[in-house]
Structure formats: C-alpha cells, structure tokens
Design a binder for these strands. Structure first.
Lengths: 119, 119
DNA sequence: CTTCCATATGAATATCTGATCATATAAATT
DNA sequence: AATTTATATGATCAGATATTCATATGGAAG
C-alpha cells in the first residue's frame, strides 16, 4: 500500500498504523469538518455570531457593536452566508442578519464552556 | 461613548446596539474562544487528534497514518501541545502522544455530527 | 564518548486570510 | 430620473500560517 519508504518514516509500527488508518474518517470529510471549525476560528466572525445570538441586527449595527468598518463586517458576513451559518432578510435598504439555526448557537456555547473549563 | 462618527457608521440603532453591546462577552475572552476553534480549523491537526482518539501513537506512526513528513507532524504537535490538547510520554527514543482530555474528543465529535447533519 | 535514530526546531518560502480602500449595487426618497 | 444611503464586492496589501529543508537535541546502545 505504501510506496514511500523513501525517507524519514523508519520506525513505523505496521500493525498499529494499519489499525488506526482503517479507523480514520475520509480525508475529504475531515477536511470539511476542519473547514467548519475554521469559520469559528476568527474572532470577528465569532463576535458577529455571538451578537446575532442576542438579536437580529443590520450590518450597520453589527459594525457599531463590534466597532469595525462596515466593509469588514460585510466581507465576513459573506463568509458566514457561504457556510450557511447566517441568513438575512431585507427591510428597505437594510439587511437584517440572523443565525441560520440552533447548531450555530450550540457550537458557540460548547466552545465557550470548554474555554471556561479548561483554563 | 463613541468618538467616531467620522465615517461609515451612519444608520446605527442606538438602543439595539447598546443592548447587544451590554450582552457581549469580553473581547479578550471571545478572542480566546476563537483561538481555540482555530486549532481545530486545520485538517492536519484535526487528523492528528482524530487518530489519537483511536489510540496513542508515536510521531513516526502519526506521520505514517497521515502520510506526511515527520517534521510537519512534529510542528503541528507543538501547536497542539501549546494549547494543551495533547500530551506525550517518552518511551526510549520515542514520544507517544495522546489526547489531553475528554474535551478534545467531544469537541471533535460534536463538529463531526454537525457537519454530517448540516449538509 | 561515539554513533544511531526518533523527535524537535529554526529559517525560508509559499499560500492563505482579513482589513482597507475605492467603487458598485440596490432600495427609498425627493 | 436623480440623489441618498445601506450594503456588497473587487483589488490590494500586510500579517499569519503550514510545509519543507537543514540541522539540532537527546536518549539508547554499542
């Protein structure tokens, strides 16, 4: 299976490696999972989501809450939309954003808890 | 409170903003939370942790399981150690790594579940 | 104490990411 | 229709990050 004994991997324990390899999830799937974590791994996006967990807000208000530029917020909202973490409804010129579902809230809550407990 | 009406933030809804601001968690804390998520937001690190959730492994075996260089793995293990997500015990020349606690496992499991459910 | 080998790490590089700036779009108001 | 204003977005740039390469460290065994 392995063609590459070329270089550094010398001390491999064949059986254990084979065992764990068989239990590993698909590369593609784990990439997707890490990609999901990544969205939460930026404090601006996390703050946006946390703010939205309090109440729906328009872009301007989010900018005010986070004390950041409208553009910066808008760019991050785009990311959050692309990951289906937030949605929005138009009301006149404004766009009111809200969290897409409960998963988002529970993800944040869990990591908040873990962060509190672990340190 | 805001000295900066300078530029773009024009349409702020004072009350809602004030309300959400009062409910926001500390900047510093949310930064820490996002920083924790960030560690899980890289597929190499996630794979390492997932592999270790199956059984303790030495660096070489991890490299074999992930099919990556020893150096790359070692660098990422350093990151994981610095965040107290993994620990290791020496056995001769080798270092056997293992997950630091159950939090790590449950974090991964949760996001795996969410990823499965959401798409 | 020298060699061997598993692991660690510093430096360099390439890629990615987030903020800014300038500008475009789109809805409301005149 | 022209203007205003809330939001979106493309381009750019700076800083962060992951891998590689070369080398160092540290324990084992001779």
């Amino acid at each position: 299976m392995e063609e590459k004994d070329t270089c550094d991997v010398i001390c491999v324990h064949e059986d254990e490696v084979k065992d764990v390899k068989s239990k590993m999830l698909e590369d593609e799937f784990l990439f997707e999972v890490s990609d999901n974590f990544k969205v939460f791994g930026d404090s601006t996006r996390l703050k946006i989501m946390y703010a939205l967990s309090q109440r729906d807000l328009c872009v301007c208000d989010l900018a005010a809450v986070l004390d950041m530029s409208q553009s910066a917020i808008s760019h991050q909202l785009r990311v959050l939309r692309s990951k289906n973490l937030v949605k929005f409804r138009r009301k006149g010129k404004m766009a009111y954003y809200y969290l897409a579902d409960e998963h988002v809230v529970s993800m944040i809550e869990l990591c908040v808890e873990h962060t509190k407990e672990r340190y």
